[in-house]
Amino acid sequence: MRRPPLFVAAWNAAFLLPVVVLILGAVSARWTFPNVIPEAYNGRGLLFLVRNAAGISTSLASSFAYSIAVVLLSALLCVLPASVLARYEFRGRVLLEAVLLSPVLIPAIAYAMGIHFVLIRLGLADTAAGVILILTAAAYPYMLRSLVAGFQGIDPNFEACARNLGAGPFRRLLLVHVPLLAPALVAGGSIVFLVAFSEYFLVFLVGGGAVKSFTGYLFPFLTAADIPIASALTLTFLAVPLVLFAVIDRAVLRFYRRRGIE
């Protein structure tokens, strides 16, 4: 087709536009109607990040910590069930798989607001533990799906071989399956992390004000429509998953290179 260069430019421009606007917004001083780009620029938005570095990094660290905890808990909960669902055929397997994957379709609000009352009674409301539990419920199906696919791609003979050589179930899991499942763990883990890290409502509902989150920090600035500050914070927010994914990508690549699998 003859058009591509122009098509490529228009396509990329359209999808990058939001980020360009966020960058412009972050350095703008005044941006009023009918100016398509800001009238004046200053460092107020960026200065805000520096001045409030303590509060911002606390909330980022908190979001990061509970999101990683959600990834680990999801992996822990899903790895053994995934091995069963991938390896065995039994009556009700399809139904069981559908039921266990259903939280990805059921809006989280439906069970989160119901369980909230119970979490209050158990003393888990307004705690990080409560937030991790509810976020795991919403996000674990991505891990389960990814691990089932991962297990289906591993030759069962590997496990039989390890068993014949005398490895117990725990060693087989740790030394045979986990390394082979690394791509599935990373793929599932990335989505789980992203879901947990981006979530506002569940953290706000179950965590109250007590569990800090970056989404909670950002929210008032979005509603106040303070463009420079909201843009600067939003860009900070976007950087975290992007940096994390880049790091993980390289780590996984190195891991496989070292083992000569690639």
């Binding site: 053994l80 266990l100 369980i115 419920a137």
Partner: peptide
């Protein structure tokens, strides 16, 4: 097999199903 499945089933039953029933 039952042992391997039960933690996730229990988690689902408590939080998701439990939440719906509580609602």
């Amino acid at each position: 097999v039952l042992l391997r499945l039960s933690p996730l089933i229990a988690f689902f039953a408590l939080i998701v199903l439990g939440g719906l029933v509580a609602a």
